[in-house]
């Protein structure tokens, strides 16, 4: 285990380096720099700003400086928000997205797994069609429809929640449902799909023949193996959901990271984009490592039984 984690940590270095290098040069290729605006800055002003941020130096020098600062843990200043450093922005926005994402993921896992299991037990019956129909509705309802719809019904008509904001604990409810439903729908479909594949396997029949209880068969034997694709899906999905969703954060006016990610790209805020990519890479690699550990844990069972 320790060896595995160490190896992953070592692998992180080239992954980060390649990501940073690609993004570093990529952002500079996109038309429009950080200082193009509706009312044009004067050429002199842009020159000064470039000087201030070191954008006037040869690109390889800029690149070198960036890497040096990164080693010190300094992600640089944001171009769009001059009085904030990228570190500040991540520190402020990540906890918000983390809370939203974690709650949404719990919601999605709970609803998704339940619906998927229930549906798979009696395929092509009402017990299958109802939860799957709901799941499909979740997929058909993009968050830019579901979010405003929930606000309309529960915020305005029933008056239970604020229409937007992130001040009170109760403000979490609608965004969590909005963000979680799409993932719940995915999880339920994947779960049902692989449950259906595992259920008819020989070893499940053996387990049943041995007279194990149905719950035991489902949770101990079937689900464990059926979780493989769900777990593979969850790696990148969790990294994604925890770093926020632009649409949901915008709809509910939540000060999270997902909004920053897209705004940084729109604003050509080079350092902020890079900083967020670095942070996101760390998460992706970490979660995929967790996924691989989980897959390893789920695997021997499969091998043993078949």
């Amino acid at each position: 285990m320790l060896k595995f984690i160490l190896r992953r940590l070592l692998e992180l270095i080239p992954v980060l380096l390649i990501s940073i290098t690609l993004v570093f040069f990529m952002v500079r290729l996109a038309p429009g720099g950080p200082f193009t605006a509706e009312k044009s800055f004067t050429a002199e002003a842009i020159e000064r700003l470039n000087e201030h941020y070191g954008l006037d130096k040869p690109i390889m020098v800029q690149y070198g400086n960036y890497l040096l600062n990164l080693l010190k843990g300094d992600l640089g200043p944001s171009f769009q928000y001059p009085s904030r450093s990228v570190n500040d922005i991540i520190k402020e926005t990540f906890p918000v997205s983390l809370e939203l994402g974690a709650l949404a993921m719990l919601f999605a896992l709970f609803v998704g797994l339940m619906a998927g299991i229930v549906a798979s037990l009696k395929p092509n019956t009402l017990q299958d069609h109802v939860p799957m129909g709901l799941a499909m509705t979740g997929i058909c309802m993009p968050s830019f429809v579901l979010g405003p719809l929930l606000i309309l019904i529960f915020g305005l008509w029933l008056g239970w929640f604020n229409a937007s904001g992130w001040e009170l604990p109760i403000d979490r409810v609608l965004p969590v449902i909005t963000l979680g439903s799409a993932y719940a729908a995915y999880i339920s479909r994947l779960t049902r799909g692989s449950m259906l594949e595992v259920l008819p396997s020989d070893y499940i029949r053996t387990a049943r023949a041995k007279g194990l209880s149905e719950a035991n068969v489902i949770f101990k034997h079937t689900l464990k193996n059926a979780l493989l694709p769900v777990v593979s899906y969850l790696g990148p999905a969790t990294a994604g959901i925890l770093t926020g969703s632009f649409v949901v954060e915008t709809i509910f006016n939540i000060p999270g990271m997902g909004r920053m990610f897209v705004l940084a790209a729109f604003n050509r805020d080079y350092t902020l984009i890079l900083g967020l990519v670095v942070f996101f890479s760390l998460l992706v690699v970490a979660f995929n490592a967790v996924v691989d550990i989980l897959l390893g844990l789920l695997n021997p069972k499969l091998r043993m039984h078949s």
């Binding site: 990501s19 996109a30 038309p31 790209a265 992706v284 995929n288």
Partner: peptide, 25 residues
Amino acid sequence: DSVMMRIVDILYTMPFTILVIILMV
């Protein structure tokens, strides 16, 4: 497997918006 999956990780972290804008250019 390691190398191939790390390539996937790298691509997964690319900022999609910027990528699309450059492709369009």
